[in-house]
Design a protein around this nucleic acid. Structure first.
Lengths: 206, 206
DNA sequence: CACTTTTAATGACAAATGTCATTTTTTTGT
DNA sequence: ACAAAAAAATGACATTTGTCATTAAAAGTG
């Protein structure tokens, strides 16, 4: 398995090289200290996997990964990071990175690398649990099952579009007072306090 | 590495057992045909990894996984599935599964299993690319580029969480009047009419 | 038909909201 | 230290909002 390592801390790179090569199945073809070097090394050696730090001087790992994947969409890039940073994880996923592993986990790096060469994606467990929280609940709130009528739902949708009571009443051919009464009942049913909380609820459960 | 396999298609289970055991590093301790059997086998053998189909008769893999993880929070459960199904992936992640791999990838299963025993999570690449699309883009709207200050943004976020002016003022150690003034300016800047429209704007541009 | 339920409307009220002009306080630059 | 600028507060005001008790009309049910 041929590797390139890129990390601005050369102690990390060297340690990784030593550990990984001691297994006998890995060859580290090159070591870079920033994004530019990573790109250059990748182009030169076309390794099986590029092991790269996210944060580096001059050019970040993310930028480098983006550029490499543009020219080599099948590139297998595995990010190494000191602690899990939500922002970066998501960006890394979007770009098309094959993994995101904490540096502390270096003892477990080898199986991860193997899995990546086989076309799979590997993440530290802590990272995945954080990730799942970022995904909005796919299960839409079932208003009908919670005693919300069709008319009430219509009002909810208009309020969640930002309309005032007056505007809702005009849209639905009701009096403003009636709309207020409806809203009052809706808020009671959903245990909310005001129309803004209703809008928030609507979008958070969408 | 000790395994339990659970799949309602026994042809699949047997094939997997054969393939995996031929490597010499894996022992399949038991084969189940549904969720109940998977739970029972897990409790009996406490395997390193439970390899399980998502869809099974009587009790689904998800249900079984949830029950097992309740009693064994460190259980390593890897889901096998025929096609990537967004709903299930997210649920599986939330529950705490360690992976989600397509059955077609059976040749690549072994490194995945190894990585999982080392405490990592493994996903088929197709699955991850689908997953990243489920995550909403963080702050698509760049408030700062539209003349919204840090303090204003803080207020926007609290209002978008459903807080009243009073509550916002307490959170930010400002007077209620000041919060009102800030809000008034924010609404002007974003051409909105009231706090509800602000919340709507916030979520629609998230 | 008489009845109940549902749906819609009123009016009264307190509270929250949004706007504005103005003042006070704090921060900043020189 | 001083003036200018920015941040925070005040007070007054009209409007909107949410709650509640009550009434009126319509629709459904026996």
């Amino acid at each position: 398995m041929k590797l390139i390592i890129a990390d601005d801390d050369s102690f990390v790179s060297i340690s990784l090289k030593t550990i990984l090569e001691s297994s006998g199945t890995v060859t580290v073809l090159g070591i870079g200290k920033n994004g530019e070097e990573a790109i250059e090394l990748y182009e030169t050696y076309l390794p099986d996997v590029l092991l790269m730090d996210i944060r580096m001087d001059t050019m970040s790992g993310l930028e480098a990964a983006e550029k490499i994947l543009k020219r080599h969409p099948d590139a297998k890039i595995l990010f190494l990071t000191t602690f899990s940073d939500d922002e970066y994880i998501v960006q890394a996923l979007r770009i098309g990175a094959k993994g995101y592993i904490l540096k502390q986990d270096f003892e477990n790096l080898l199986p991860a690398l193997t899995a990546v060469t086989k076309g799979q994606s590997v993440f530290g467990s802590e990272i995945v649990s954080g990730l799942s929280q970022l995904i909005p609940k796919a299960n839409q709130y079932d208003y009908k099952r919670h005693g919300i009528s069709d008319k009430e739902l219509a009002i909810i949708e208009l309020i969640a579009a930002g309309l005032s009571n007056k505007e809702v009443s005009e849209k639905l051919f009701l009096s403003e007072g009636t709309v207020r009464n409806y809203l009052s009942v809706i808020l009671e049913k959903l245990s909310l306090r005001d129309r803004t909380q209703l809008a928030v609820f609507y979008y958070q459960n969408q």
